[in-house]
Design a protein around this nucleic acid. Sequence first.
RNA 1: GCCCGGAUGGCGGAACCGGUAGACGCGUUGGUCUCAAACACCAAUAUCGCAAGAUGUGCCGGUUCGACUCCGGCUCCGGGUACCA
Length: 987
Amino acid sequence: MPAYRPEEIEKKWQAHWKAHNTFQAHNHSEKPKYYVLDMFPYPSGAGLHVGHPLGYIASDIVSRYKRLRGFNVLHPMGFDSFGLPAEQYAIQTGQHPALTTDQNIETYIKQLSSLGFSYDWSREIRTSDASYYKWTQWIFLKLFNSWYNLDTNKAEPLTDLTARFAERGSEGIRAAGDEGDRQVFTAGQWQLFTEHQKLAAVHSYRLAYQQDTYVNWCPGLGTVLSNDEVKDGLSERGGYPVERRLMPQWNLRITAYADRLLAGLDTLDWPDAVKEMQRNWIGKSIGAEVTFPVESSELRTENLEIKVYTTRVDTIYGATFLVLAPEHELVDKITTPGQRAAVDEYIAATKRRSERDRMADTKTVSGVFTGAYALNPVNQEPVQIWLADYVLAGYGTGAVMAVPSGDQRDYVFAQHFGLPIPAISDAQQGLDQQADPTKEGRYINSGIINGLTYKEATTKLIAYLEEKGLGRGKVNFRLRDSIFGRQRYWGEPIPIYYKDGTAYGIAESDLPLVLPEINEYKPTETGEPPLGRAQNWLYRNQYPYELSTMPGWAGSSWYYLRYMDPTNEARFVSEEAEQYWGTVDLYMGGAEHATGHLLYARFWYLFLKDLDLVSSNEPFQKLINQGMILGRSNFVYRLNVSLPITEIKIEGPELAKIYPATFFISKDKVIKYQAGDEAVTKEILVFVQNYIADFNNKELGVKIIDPHGTSISDLHVDVMLVENDVLDINAFRKSRHDYRLAEFITEDDGRYLCGWEIEKMSKSKLNVVNPDVLISKYGADALRLYEMFLGPLEQYKPWNTNGISGVSGFLKKLWRLFHPEDGDLAVTDEPATPAELKVLHRAIQKVQEDIERFSFNTSVSLFMITVNELTALKCHKRAILEPLVLLLSPYAPHLAEELWQELGHEPGSISTAGYPEFREEYLVEDNVTYPLAINGKVREQMQFAATATASEIETAVLASDFLARFGEGKSAKKVIVVPGRMVNVVV
RNA sequence: GCCCGGAUGGCGGAACCGGUAGACGCGUUGGUCUCAAACACCAAUAUCGCAAGAUGUGCCGGUUCGACUCCGGCUCCGGGUACCA
């Protein structure tokens, strides 16, 4: 083989790995296991751009490194193949989403394979395969048939619950969820319940339950969305507006796990940012629930109460009014006739406001008085009851006690509506313009807590309220139960059927419930989900199925378990496989899944743990977020000059042929022009005038008249037409029909310079760089190395295609170490010199350290330095090059395999050949030069043996004559020796 | 607003425990090879300065013999999140 030809080498080894199942992992092994997982992709139609493989490359390096280190590595890949884009495409074209999805997956597999990843493709899974979603449905049924026992603090089968009902009734059962929804009954009553009544009583205990819920309804997509699928009031996919709506929905009781999800974070080796995001998302707050009785009047006979939630019960003496959410259930009952009209108007106005408006507008104060009063339970003072949309129905009790002296929002509200603002702490003298939310000072005007501090007051008040039955300490979470249904086609059918309006789970033996074929993918005319179109789709030929499907995150919440045992038809994963592989050792993926997928997956895992189906507490031990690779967009600058032409005799295509040009001005000229440079302004003017004169001289039957307009706009230009910011003018003219006659005002050297900007990579910005093009030009090894070389893995960083020539050159240099004349292998068996051994062993040590702390970019640099040094040493020795190939093999596996074979090893054996042995003695052989400094100023360098101790060096320095030369005759006060670094002398 | 990151040449970045700031690569400039181009190779490349030298890691201050690194106070940029009571 002559010169280095990556394309041949890479094809050869990819075929070899495939044919020999080189990376197949076995569920039984003497070796220790290591599980490296990538977040599996949704196979989008656009294919991969250079940003996508970043994390895959990094995890592949770790996988290959761990194999060298003697681990049995599980490194699988699959596809999260249910999802909206394929369905939207189906609605537009009628093409079945399964077809689109399969085509996209083929493209993905082809692209991933061309990068040389060491996936065990025999374990590939697709969430849209019935053999997979059978088990997603199975887990759903487990949730449906479980409740959360607060006494044991775990999920338990519903059969345990119904057995207790039969024995003791509902008495004494503490279950996660809203007690208000649950009936109270005795064992005797339970026995007399009909089946229907029993199911109704049990329903509100289920971990998967149906309930009227305020949801994020997205009319544009025709479905509900979960909180993490909504960004700034718009849908994450598609960017359609989202509104609040009350609808019956399937929910998963993730809130039962809030505390455990929070506590588990402390045990995880995850980025702090992700842990913090999950903590905020769960949003634990410790406070109290306090009951305010509504003041009775002749109009009302009922004794109504309003429960509020507060984290500052100590401020209760300053509570001068209550505020309810407009959706609060008591609003109707307490509103006085006099205020009825105003209240109705306010509620209507709130409903009209979209979620987005409500969020955008947090400055204006709005609210309405209900006319009703409640009594402050600690001092019996009447307090007004108001409505305002700043109080959220979904959090706490949907009602707050307003303390204007302690909370800024309450302060503003009180001031706006002229409500009293009494001080309750001696730290609050002169509440001028703002509230005092601090917990400093001692309480005043505060009955039983006067003179106390924050801590004393809180303890005393909670005890007082609990004793009087007016309140209790309570922990609240921001986390809401997750809405589990989507009114879409392309998802897992929810395995529920209805008998007399009651929901039943289908029998496990009837799984999978296969997605039926339908003729159109839109909602039905009656507004039902697309599954309403399915013909004769009935459970056991008589009962209608649930028509919504599962959300996108269902299949991804447990896929990592399925990889352990992907073809098992009897169980979601066999016990042996689950126990052997345990949990994921390294999980690589984007930070955008912090509060979605990563939280749901942890929730499902804890649930499975409660049912003894898995054996740990957390599924992902270490998480790394790879940063996004950003695109470098290029811009051209169009001169907006209108060139109207005279009345014409030609039309249509003929006219199009001669239509006047668009003018593009090179970047530096634009800058000068905008800065008012007269020479450039004149140049542009003359250029346009000459063009017009030229055009009019051509006697085309039309003439340009009266040009006007001089603004400049910047337009994205395809980065493939630009090199080093210089536009390929001819290619640009050809790229778009309307630019074929374009004129260019270039720099004086004739080049057209483009502007640039760093943006997200996207088709619309024309800045997408396709990996296939780079692989065919430089090879997958070069692309892998270069992506790692770009910068720290976790950082966002811009792509720059030019840089790849550097790593490409490195691979060529490496090749030449083996083939100095680019001919056959010319490696010698001479013994290595100390200098060569030093270069090698530094690399062995550094690469190992780098991989273990995920610092791949510095490793690539080191490879380059190493090869440069060995080239300078003219080292072509097996003793050096063979270990070097091993070191490099995780990064550039194809070339490494090739060289490994050329060195006489069994083809394909490099992946388990073992990591080279590091010997420190080679690194410390030389003498070490210490910079010598007096009072911090570096004056000279001194040589010592690397083995010299600090005190030996100190003695030598004091004995030397340097003080006479540099110390201006002074004597040394102190000699500080930093081993290997610096000798510092204080005079 | 709150929480979490970050700021180093023309560019991406390196500097691990406080010890010669700018490794490595790109780009640029000059050179060798070539009829020429490409490839390759050699040299220079933080800033100012002919040089000696001086100044330099967002800003102000502190600790230290010595600070990109630690501490206090800012500025700007990025990400997350929000009338959460």
